[in-house]
Structures are given as structure tokens and as C-alpha cells.
Write a protein that binds this DNA or RNA. Structure first.
Lengths: 244, 244
DNA sequence: ATCATACACGAACAAGTGTTCTGTGTCAAG
DNA sequence: CTTGACACAGAACACTTGTTCGTGTATGAT
């Protein structure tokens, strides 16, 4: 049962609620007139009158002659459902952001005509990537084994069928196998070619489906001629604004 | 060496610190003049000048013509931690980590058949986006006016010619005009259609060039039939790994 | 009836405050 | 040298805002 805070008139309560929620939503206090509008009181003096009461009762405090300086000491929330407070909301957002930026090493370029550079297979042996790209951890699946990720810059237009453009950054996780529907970077022995495709195993053969659904799939009859290098986790296109 | 991870000048930093701690101590924002006093700046206009910068950089937001309405988005605490409490320390660390991550609001979806949702044109009036996407500040040009950026989720395959897929996230900056070579989101009156294209002015007509260079451009003879909604800053494709 | 008290309006005022415009000096690029 | 950008001061302005005061109307107690 809702135990209403003691001895507050309806008006006083309404003001307290208003100030509380206003502050949470806006990040600053309402002015006297804004409070007046809300409780349908025409004169600023009357609002001030109520505020004085609330102040004496210890619910709020304010600074003399300072705009929007109401501090709520005992917050009162509307009886309506549990709306998240600013704080819990902020905490939640921070939690979601997991307060972290991942620098993902850019190991080189990915071109159709060549195998892709791969991270050193063994150990976390130090090596300096030329550069790296910062990605918020919140953008990756929580389960992602983040330390293995690496990035490549796309060179050329040969991967247009994968909806990947010259200059795009693809982020990969090393893998030798794939499940149906995953996008993989593969090396095709038959064609001497690196490509990005959606992977589907169909009986004994493999179908490689371009991301652009208007284009035709490739069928690989002998899966041993296909080397999966990694799964595509993300594609980032930084659209460079040309110098005016 | 103190690595200041953000491109803030000393003054800007000092202001951010001041506003942050002032708000924490007082429960409300300082006025422009109070800030000016603190950083020993005589004129309110100069303080406003700095606040505008901080606003554009996305560190704070304020309400036009409203006193003491500064909201600190990425708190910055003074570097003199004389015995920080457990809490303030935690808060500070979170703040520091958050500083380099920009939460960009996702305002809705972008479909060919409808105009795109736009951010409220004036007043940074606080509004709650359904969700947001975190982007590392380092991935954007330093000059970017970060506070205006917004994101849209692509729905449907109608923007394949722009190399943009169903489910992709595009990040935009509002704009009414564009320079040659910039990628823009436009509404075409003649076709009742939203599309993403590279923009080229050619004499009196405009050429809209698909990102996929194998496709043909659109020519708009009467540029008044073309409404530029924003410039594309980035495209992000989170490749969802299907549940194994 | 009288008085006190709580509630209410409106106006007027002064201070607080954000905005804008003009001007000045510096400094580096052209 | 000129130009344009940037950093800064100062003042004028308009709007916002808190404060105060005069007035009015109920209501209840005396």
C-alpha cells in the first residue's frame, strides 16, 4: 500500500511530483511559472507560497534569487507505474555501453585477388597493427570473444555483390567453419579469389549467397576447395566528406 | 604524459569540470556569468562561445533562453582527486570511459516509400529516442558537430543501389544543402521516394549517383524537386550471427 | 460581527540571465 | 601586405525569473 508522505496537501504533493519528474527528464529545475502552469495557478506568488511551505517542511531547498535552483530533498514520484528514474536509466545505459571501447586492429586490406591477412594464430604475441578502429563494445554481441577480432579494409569494387564497398572496414572473427546463414570470408581455390558471402551447406555442396539478393549464388560442389577464413561480425563505412 | 583523449582545450575542460562539480555540489547549473567568473573571463559572450563549442562537441546540451539549463552529457572531473570516495571514483571512471563513446539516437527507420524521421529542428529539447547506437568518437572527423547526428535503421532492400542493406544503420547529419561528392539522404518529389545517393551538381541539374558504380545515376532537372534531408556520415552493418 | 488564517490573483519591480552586435588584437596562411 | 580565422571584451538588449505588495475571498473560531 502506498503510504503517502505525511501531511502534504494535494497541491504540495503535485508540485513535489512535478519538480521531481521535471528534473529527471530535463536535468534542471522548472521555474516558478512553469510550476504554476502545471498546477493551474495563475500567480507566481502563490507558487512561491507553496514552495516556502515545502521548504519549511524540508522537502526541498532553494537558493534565494537564483533561477531554477530548487533541490528536491525527498523525491516524490507520481503514483503511476514504475517509471525508471534518471539515475537507474543512466546506470542502465552505462551498463549497456559496458563502459568500454575496443580498439580492433586493422591487419591490412582485403582484395578479391589475394588471401586475406590473418592474425598470428598462436598466443597473443605482440605485434603492432598499422592502425586500429575503435568500436563500442555495446555494438557487439555480449558473447563475442572480443580479443580475437580483427579488421580489414576493403580495396576495390570486387565485393560489391556482398554489399561491401571500396574503403569499407569489415570486422572478422577467425573461424574455420561456419553455420548456415553466417557471413564468411572465404578463399576459393578454384578461382583464386577471396570473397564475402553468406554460407549455406546444402547436402554435400555449399551455396555461397551474395548479400545483394538480386545477384546469383555460387555453388561449391567440393567443400574442400573452400577455405573459410573468418566470420564477418560487422561492416563499417565511414563516408568521407570531401574537402569542400 | 597525460593523454587527454579528447580534443578539448584547457578552457573547455575547465568549464566542463566546473559545471560538473557545480551541479554535483549545488544541484543545479551555474549561470553563464558564474562560469565566466570561474575561468576569469569577463564577457558573457565568450563563455557562450565556449559553451556552443562544447554543445557541438556533444559534451553538454542546453535549452535556448532558459537559465541554468546546462546538462552535462559526459562528465569530466578535475584531475585532482584528493581522496575521492568510492562512489565518486566509480562515477568518475565511468564518466571517463564514456567520454569517448557517443550515444547516437536512433530516430526510426528509413524506407524508400516514406520521408525519414528527423530530429526536432530547434531547441535541443530533450527527447527520448527509443534506442541509441554507441559510436567511438575517434571514428568521426574531429570537426563533426556531433550533437546533431542521428541514426536510422534501414528497412527493406530498396537501397541496395546505395550499397545499403536491410538492417543497416546509417548515421546522418542534418543538412539542406550538399557539396559535390557527398552522400546524401534525399526525398524526391517526383517519385515520392527517399533514397541515398552521391550528390553532384552539374550546371542547373543535379546528378544522383548510386554508390554501386555499376548502376546508373538519376538526373534531376529541377533541383527544387529534390529535398536534401541530411548527409550520410557513416554506415554500420551489424552482421547478426544466427543462433547456431 | 470581528478577526485570524489560509488560499488566490495580478501587477509591478528588480535582479538574474541568455543573446547579439560591435570592436580589438593576434596569428598564420595566402 | 592582406585576408580570414580565432580568441576576447564590453555593452546593449530582451527575456526570464524570483520577490514583494496590494487586494480579494472564503472559512472557521471567537
Amino acid at each position: 500500500m502506498v503510504r503517502r508522505s505525511h501531511g502534504l496537501s494535494e497541491r504540495q504533493l503535485k508540485i513535489l511530483e512535478f519538480v521531481t519528474t521535471f528534473q529527471e527528464k530535463q536535468g534542471y529545475s522548472p521555474s516558478i511559472r512553469q510550476i504554476g502552469d502545471y498546477i493551474h495557478v495563475k500567480s507566481t506568488s502563490l507558487v512561491d507560497y507553496y514552495l516556502k511551505q515545502l521548504e519549511e517542511a524540508g522537502y526541498i531547498s532553494r537558493e534565494g534569487r537564483v533561477s531554477r535552483s530548487i533541490r528536491v530533498i525527498h523525491p516524490v514520484y507520481p503514483a503511476t507505474p514504475n517509471m525508471p528514474t534518471q539515475l537507474t536509466k543512466a546506470v542502465r545505459e552505462v551498463g549497456e555501453a559496458m563502459r568500454d571501447i575496443l580498439p580492433i586492429p586493422i591487419l591490412g586490406v582485403i582484395v578479391a585477388s589475394e588471401p586475406i591477412p590473418m592474425p598470428p594464430t598462436q598466443g597473443t604475441s605482440y605485434f603492432d597493427p598499422d592502425s586500429s578502429i575503435d568500436v563500442a563494445r555495446s555494438m557487439l554481441p555480449r558473447s563475442e570473444r572480443v580479443s580475437e577480432l580483427f579488421a580489414l579494409e576493403v580495396r576495390g569494387n570486387s565485393m560489391i555483390d556482398a554489399m561491401v564497398n571500396d574503403g569499407d572496414i569489415v570486422i572478422l572473427r577467425p573461424a574455420q567453419e561456419a553455420h548456415n546463414g553466417e557471413m564468411v570470408a572465404v578463399w576459393l581455390d578454384d578461382r583464386d579469389e577471396t570473397t564475402l558471402k553468406y554460407f549455406y551447406r546444402e547436402g554435400s555442396r555449399v551455396r555461397l549467397q551474395p548479400a545483394n539478393s538480386t545477384m546469383n549464388p555460387i555453388y561449391i560442389e567440393d567443400p574442400s576447395h573452400l577455405r573459410i577464413m573468418g566470420k564477418v561480425v560487422m561492416v563499417i563505412r565511414q563516408v568521407s566528406a570531401p574537402v569542400s
